[in-house]
Every structure is written in C-alpha cells, then in structure tokens.
Computed example of a mutant assay.
Amino acid sequence: MSQASVLTVPADRDTRSTILATGRRVMGAKGFSAVGLSEILGEAGVPKGSFYHHFGSKDAFGEAMLGAYFEDYLREMDLVVTKPGLTGAERLMLYFANWRETQGAMDCQGRCLTVKLAAEVSDLSETMRRALKAGTDGVIARLAAMIGAGVDDGSIRIASTARDVATSLYHQWLGASVMVKILRVEDPFDCAARTTRQMIGQIAA
C-alpha cells in the first residue's frame, strides 16, 4: 500500500465519522425530514462530494447514522450490564436511572434518536426501520440479560419470561419518554419507575 493510501484511509474514516456525528446531533434536535443534506454538510464543514463518497443517499446515511448510534448506545449499555458488585435488579434500575437522566433533558442533543426518529423514519424508509429494529432488539436482549441475572441472584421476581418483561419495560419507558416531551414534566418517568419496581417484584403491586 502506498503512503498516500495509508494517509487517505484514516482521513476518509474521520470524514465519515464527522458527517455521522453531525447528522446525529442535528437530526436528534430537528428530526430527519426537516434537515437537508446541505445543513448537515455545512455544520460538518465537508463538501457534498464527500457525502456521496460515503453514502449513496439520504436514506443510506440515515441507516448508517442509526447503526452508529446503536453501536455506541449498546456499548455504553454493556458497561451497566456487566457492572461488578451489583445485583441484577440494581443494574436494571441503574440503567433506567441513566435513561431518565439522558432522555429527560428537553434538548437531548442527539442522545435519544429512537424516541426522536422512530415514528417518523419507520414510515419513510424500510432500511431505517430495520436499523431501528436491530438496535432496539439489542437493547431488549440486554434488558432480558439483566432481568435473568436478577432472577438467578434472587433480586428479581417475575411472573413471565425475562424476554417478555424486558420487552414490556422497554415499551413502557419509550412511551414515558414521549409523554415527558408532551407534558414537559418528568412525572411519566416516576410512574415508569414505580411500575418497573412492581414488575420485578421490588414493591407490592
């Protein structure tokens, strides 16, 4: 490989990462349809040719952006799933405490793409819908792992399968995040936290 090729590969990766990070931030605030490529590229400081070098279309960019978002999100989630010295129930409640902290902000700066974009892009693009499904499946699988570990260590008591409870909890917290945006108060998170504790046997139903 020539010296020029060696230098080009990292530069290409940096440009692609810059475009993705800028798109995540801007679309996380404004939505997918409301943001044009020119705005993303202007914010990123890269020419249009660089965009089409990495992405064939806006939909392809959206798919890649969601993939990168979930890769980062699941990596952070794995730190909670494997956090030593905690019971399964403590790990689960820590995850939802982190959720509340990041999703509760009125301006979450691209950290809540599932809440922000799911309903919009699932109707616009099948590839983006599949990217969302793959990412949310990963979240639910990790929730199920925490719940299963809690059942094993005795900190969680459930009447259904770990997967079913994980799915119900994830759907509940997604709904709570939407309602927080509508109501501009965090009461829906309080309700979700109480219901979560009930579902895992931490408090009486």
Rank of each mutant, 00 (worst) to 15 (best):
Q103E: 14
M65T: 03
E71W: 03
E63M: 06
G88R: 00
L66P: 07
T22R: 09
A44S: 06
D78K: 14
G138H: 05
G201E: 02
E43S: 14
W99E: 12
T87I: 03
K58T: 06
L132T: 00
D12L: 13
M93Y: 09
G42A: 12
Y170A: 02
D164I: 12
H54R: 02
C108E: 13
A97L: 09
H171T: 14
F51M: 04
R194S: 13
G85Q: 05
G154W: 01
A192S: 03
T161A: 05
W99R: 13
R100N: 10
L20C: 02
F51P: 05
E120W: 07
E120V: 03
L20W: 01
L117A: 01
G150F: 04
G110C: 01
T136G: 06
L92Y: 09
M77G: 06
S57T: 08
F96C: 06
M199F: 12
G23A: 06
G67A: 00
G148V: 00
R16M: 03
A97K: 09
Q198F: 11
Q109C: 13
L41W: 12
R142C: 08
T136S: 10
T18D: 10
A21C: 07
A193S: 11
L74Y: 00
A192Q: 01
E186F: 09
M146C: 05
R184Y: 13
F96P: 04
V6A: 15
H53E: 12
K58D: 02
A176C: 04
S125Q: 06
S17H: 11
G138D: 01
K181A: 14
F32R: 04
E63I: 07
T8I: 10
D164T: 13
T196A: 08
G154H: 02
R142E: 01
M65F: 02
I156D: 00
T167Y: 13
I158C: 04
M128A: 08
F61N: 01
D190Q: 05
G56F: 03
L143C: 10
G28D: 04
R16Q: 07
T195Q: 14
L94K: 11
I156Q: 02
G150E: 01
A166P: 10
T18V: 14
K83R: 15
L37E: 11
S155T: 00
F32A: 07
T161L: 04
R194C: 12
R75W: 12
D187H: 12
I203L: 05
P84G: 06
G175A: 10
W99P: 09
